[in-house]
Design a protein around this nucleic acid. Structure first.
Length: 413
RNA sequence: CGGGGUAUGGUGUAAUGGUAGCACGAAUCGUUUGGGACGAUUUAGUCUCAGUUCGAAUCUGAGUACCCCGACCA
């Protein structure tokens, strides 16, 4: 991608409304744009990151056996009345069609996936199975805040599993916990993300949240001083000991919930009459689990954790580009070399953002590069070309080194 | 939803009742080119509606929007 063509502008000044580090940096670097409170556009750079997060999640969900589907955003009122959530769920967006008919905008999809499963699950032979989707969700949050960390419209992966008995659900649930840990590790927030025992809401007694520790978070968790498990403040009173190692010493941390997993049991299979026949021909309710991840939150949490005073520092696997190629001085030799490098590296499937702007000074280009946070910065200038080299600098490190042009693609791969 | 705050060019800000100014950005020209370079010329603004006043960015009222604290958060 040529930087002069990139649909975005970086901003030098901190925005007056920025409410968190991630908000400020993502706006200034041109990754997102706010339309209204809690509603954002992902600009090309931000969308690239979002798609990479999506890619990781999709890969892991498929590995876990999930089949991807796409359910509607527009839901019939009846389904939500059936579970009682039309009236009780305060964040539910309700919309009216032309003829006074009412609909819900999907905040989650138990009300759709359960009746869907009922059409296809008849026998124990149809179980277990799981489906997932990655789709925009709508929640009428009374208060949107912290930039993209808490929004009214957001991309979410929701995964639903269906089981014939409790032990199968339990086993699958534990497996998903591990899959989740791996996703957050790949996204670059593994170290700061804790599996956290939390309230089950209206579903079950407990659920597990995945909480990423950051000052911008709105939850308080107690992290076990011995193992990597935490307890959400909302249930701390009833749980004085670590659920894993029974230790009673905890560290208090602020955190943001990037994902969660629930054992739904029969909570939704019951109202939708989702049953199957077992080997003995006896009718039994299907047991369900659901597993969510907020993609925008993951993105925001990464920025909260991985940045410095100059800008974002993207982890390699979700960075919008692998390398940021910058030319300094517009001499014919520099231009020619940089352009060739740009096409050559792309041929090797290395994603390059090429700052080919000739009317910007070196300082401005460096500042933009630091703000955008692409993992590698490649500088081509007369100075480096004297040694048949380019300068290679990792965004996360302070020093740069000269690398022979021929060796560059090997290092980047 | 309760409470608080704010609203001035694209962005960040100044102007406490009397000429809307500065910086960044953007545009043109020239000089520059290893950390947001320099000069010249230009561009663009008082959230909306009503009121007070000779005169309103400034005071009053209503509305709207955004931000913060709290409550809420399958």
């Amino acid at each position: 991608m040529l930087q002069s063509k990139l649909f975005c502008k970086t901003q030098k000044e901190k925005s007056a409304d920025s409410s968190s580090v991630s908000h400020d940096l993502l706006v200034r670097a041109g990754f997102v744009d706010q339309l209204m409170a809690g509603v954002y556009t992902y600009m090309p750079l931000g969308f690239k990151v979002l798609q990479k997060v999506e890619c990781i999640i999709r890969e892991e969900m498929e590995k876990a056996g999930g089949q991807e589907i796409l359910m509607p955003v527009l839901h019939p009122k009846e389904n939500w009345e059936k579970t009682g959530r039309w009236d009780s769920l305060d964040i539910l967006f309700k919309v009216k069609g032309g003829g006074e008919k009412e609909y819900a905008l999907g905040p989650t999809h138990e009300e759709v996936v359960s009746p869907l499963a009922k059409k296809f699950v008849l026998s124990y032979k149809d179980l277990p199975f799981s489906v997932f989707q990655i789709q925009t969700k709508f929640r009428d949050e009374l208060r949107a805040k912290s930039g993209i960390l808490r929004t009214r419209e957001f991309l979410m992966k929701d995964f639903y599993s269906f089981h014939s008995d409790q032990s199968d659900l339990d086993k699958f649930y534990d497996k998903m916990a591990k899959v989740y840990a791996n996703i957050f590790k790949r996204a670059g927030i593994g170290k700061q993300t804790y599996q956290t025992l939390a309230s089950g809401g209206s579903f079950s007694k407990y659920s597990d949240e995945f909480q990423t520790v950051t000052e911008a978070g709105e939850d308080i968790i107690y992290v076990c001083s011995k193992c990597k498990i935490a307890i959400n403040r909302e249930i701390k009173e009833e749980n004085q000991f670590c659920p894993k190692c029974k230790n009673s010493e905890f560290e208090t941390k602020k955190s943001v919930e990037v994902g969660n997993i629930f054992k739904l049991g029969t909570k939704y299979s019951a109202p939708f009459d989702l049953k199957f026949r077992d080997k003995d021909g006896i009718e039994k309710p299907v047991l369900m689990g659901c597993y969510g991840i907020g993609l925008g939150r993951v993105l925001g949490a990464v920025v909260e954790i991985s940045h410095d005073e100059k800008g974002i520092i993207w982890p390699a696997e979700i960075a919008p580009f692998s390398a940021h190629l910058i030319q300094i001085e517009n001499t014919p030799k520099v231009l020619k070399t940089a352009q060739k490098l740009y096409t050559d590296l792309q041929k090797e499937n290395i994603e390059i953002l090429y700052d080919e702007r000739q009317d910007k000074t070196a300082g401005e280009k460096f500042a933009d590069a630091d703000l955008m946070g692409i993992p590698y910065r490649i500088v081509v200038s007369e100075r480096t070309l004297k040694q048949d080299s380019v300068e290679l600098k990792e965004r996360s490190k302070s020093s740069a080194k000269l690398v022979k042009i021929k060796q560059l693609s090997k290092i980047l791969k």
